[in-house]
Amino acid sequence: MITIGVLALQGAVREHIRSIEACGAKAVEVKRVEQLEEINGIILPGGESTTMRRLIDSYGFFSALKEFGRQGKPVFGTCAGLILMASEIDGQDNAHLGLMNMKVARNAFGRQVASFEADLEVSHIGDAFNAVFIRAPYVLEAGPEVEILATYQDRIVAAKQGHYLCTAFHPELTDDNRVIAHFVTMVEASMKATA
């Protein structure tokens, strides 16, 4: 059985757990580094990236998550999770995990009053995907190895690099589980590749 973890230091954990289970995989809340051994892929949920980074450092997740990715295990970041995965953050000296070769901007669409929903076409997923953007970031620049999956008003809001996936929006906040289902297939493929 496929087991997918959700980093449960802070943020919208419950919604991801529900989506993973709706896609037929087993879901685990990951609060301790040892739990990374039990899972085949991990979701870095939405929340506050500054808070998550502080807790990632406090509990030894920083190098453990990088190593998890190096082993070829899939990682999916939504919103704050996308920021954690980027190799460069606009206006900041240091990035976080640096898993994906891209430069991102935080709160790039503005403050909460500018948060919005919009229907998007997302490669590998399909069209009319109701995407929920909350104080969302977007990708300013992406390296050649990064596949752009979706744009909104010419800004990159979903991308993939090998076994890494990220969205600026929150697929876990709606009942449309297509994005999570795609991540589950990525985890499935990685398990076959390493079996």
Partner: peptide, 21 residues
């Protein structure tokens, strides 16, 4: 095409604060 201030966007913002101070 895009909607601001929806119930989902407003409640979702609070969901992102969960587990936090």
């Amino acid at each position: 095409m895009s909607n601001t201030g929806t119930e989902r966007v407003k409640r979702g913002m609070a969901e992102m604060q969960k587990g936090g101070v």
